[in-house]
Write a protein that binds this DNA or RNA. Structure first.
Length: 455
RNA sequence: UCCUCUGUAGCUCAGCGGUAGAGCGGGUGGCUGUUAACCACUAGGUCGUUGGUUCGAAUCCAACCGGAGGAGCCA
């Protein structure tokens, strides 16, 4: 008899008859004549309620000692439930205890703090919330591939170990070899020069866009910054599309289209988990996602954004000045208070942006854009890249970058240069946005943050 | 790196200068188709660590350690 996923059993129109399910006990309620055992196998949020009569063979050995956390295999008839709360339940004919769990199993049926659950990251996927989060994480990863593959984008695996630093995108982790306590540096360097864990696959991605036209990367990224916030992790996943023959306008179009596509997929493909998030995590989540899916994003230039902020009469902690970075509070005001919807800000001053962004005709701004969403702030950052050799060289000189080291990157402008553009989307920030979960540590299976690399 | 908050039973918390508490979870027993089941009994604690103030410290003070939130930086 093959195992039926609980999701399949619960979705049945008519009773599937006698089936075998396996899973972990979430809770058990005994009375004199029988026990109710709720079993979850992770295939969906809901548990299957098992009714086990006291007359069942093996009842005392297999059913009575069950605790939350134990694993079981159950065979029984799927029947309409007499009680409220579920359509189907199983009338057990055979219960096998696979792996017992002691009474000290740390997950209870209620009342855990997120901090405690983080300390048991190996067990937290067995909770309702984390089961839901990680089913959604899987589904969103699938939807991202689907979005790009449907549009003819080629998936490129950019290197995880790199010698280029994508221009100060953040502090980096050094890659070294060791022998005992000794670290091999200098002449002993494994790659013959200092190497690091990647902070972005963008520069490598550009080379492939300048051959395959539309590409995307989707992989882990590392930042060694000592930031202690709910939105930063040392290891996170990033999606970075890069499109040849594309300008900033097209870049913003695809970025906004992608966000709406992913939110739409969340609404249709993750309905049960979404309902759970809306009920227990973030009351207005579903309505907000529907709004984002159905309404066009606002678009303003950096200059207009500064104007709006200055005219707002709002008392910001940091003053708003043309030429300075927008602060978190400014981004939040724009998307949460002023527009009340996702907002794309573009054409930033060149002075606050990296060397690879394309200089606009005004000479002072670059073709950069950020997509801001309520509750998160910056979800996407992107730009049209500088495709003109002389401009790029000038930018590199201004940023003190060695042309030798980035020779391969400059080559793209020497041979068949084309306009191109791309952006980066933080996968975990997307997940925070679609689940309402407030901390990045709770949407990544085993989070790495300064001082923490457990499990 | 800076600022703020926080650390009491396995978990969630109350107690805030005078004998260490509750709910949940665990154990034992009971029980009406229960669903955060219910009822009764029961075990469980160097109050983060070190030092100080005091007749007396979980409580006040200092340092350190851990956790969280915010800022900066960014995705």
């Amino acid at each position: 008899m093959t195992r039926s996923p609980i999701a399949t059993v619960l979705q049945s129109e008519n009773s599937p008859g006698k089936v075998l399910v396996s899973g972990w006990v979430r809770t058990k309620r005994d009375s004199k004549a029988f026990s109710f055992v709720e079993v979850n196998d992770g295939s969906c949020l809901s548990n299957l309620q098992i009714v086990a009569d006291a007359t069942l063979p093996g009842y005392e050995e297999a059913v009575l000692p069950l605790h939350t956390g134990a694993s079981v295999e159950v065979i029984g008839e799927i029947v309409e439930s007499q009680g409220k709360g579920q359509k189907w339940e199983m009338q057990a004919s055979e219960v096998r205890l696979l792996g017992a769990a002691d009474g000290d199993f740390p997950l209870q049926k209620k009342g855990h703090s997120m901090e405690f659950l983080r300390s048991i990251a190996h067990l937290r996927p067995r909770s309702n919330l984390f089961g839901a989060v990680f089913r959604v994480r899987s589904r969103m990863a699938y939807a991202i591939h689907q979005f790009f593959q449907d549009r003819g984008f080629v998936y490129v695996h950019t290197p995880i170990i790199t010698a280029s630093d994508c221009e100060g995108a953040g502090e980096m982790f050094r890659v070294v070899t060791t022998e005992g306590d000794e670290i091999h540096l200098g002449d002993e360097e494994f790659f013959g020069k200092p190497s690091y864990l990647t902070v972005s696959g963008q520069l490598e991605g550009e080379t492939f866009a300048c051959a395959l036209s539309n590409i995307y990367t989707f992989g882990p990224t590392f930042r060694a910054e000592n930031s202690h916030t709910s939105r930063h992790a040392s290891e996170f996943w990033m999606i970075e599309p890069e499109m040849a023959f594309c300008d900033l306008e097209g870049d913003m179009d695809i970025a906004e289209e992608m966000v709406q596509y992913l939110v739409g997929d969340m609404l249709t493909s993750c309905a049960e988990d979404l309902a759970f998030f809306s009920r227990f995590v973030d009351k207005g989540l579903k309505e907000r996602l529907e709004f984002v899916r159905d309404r066009p994003f606002e678009r303003v230039t950096y200059e207009e954004a500064v104007q709006i902020l200055n005219d707002s009469g709002e008392a910001f902690e940091y003053s708003v000045e043309y030429g300075a970075n927008l602060q978190s509070e400014h981004e939040r005001y724009l998307t949460e208070t002023h527009f009340r919807c996702p907002t794309t800000v573009y054409n930033y001053p060149a002075s606050i942006k990296p060397f690879y962004m394309r200089r606009n005709d005004d000479g002072k701004t670059v073709a950069a854009m950020d997509v801001l969403v309520p509750g998160i702030g910056e979800l996407i950052g992107g730009s049209q890249r500088e495709e003109r050799l002389d401009f790029l060289r000038k930018n590199m000189a201004e940023h003190d970058l060695s042309e030798e080291e980035y020779d391969w990157y400059v080559d793209l402008r020497r041979y068949g240069s084309v306009k191109h553009a791309g952006f980066g989307l933080g996968f975990e920030r997307l997940l925070m946005f679609v689940t309402g979960v407030a901390n990045i540590r709770d949407v990544i299976p085993f989070p790495r943050t300064p001082g923490v690399a457990d499990f």
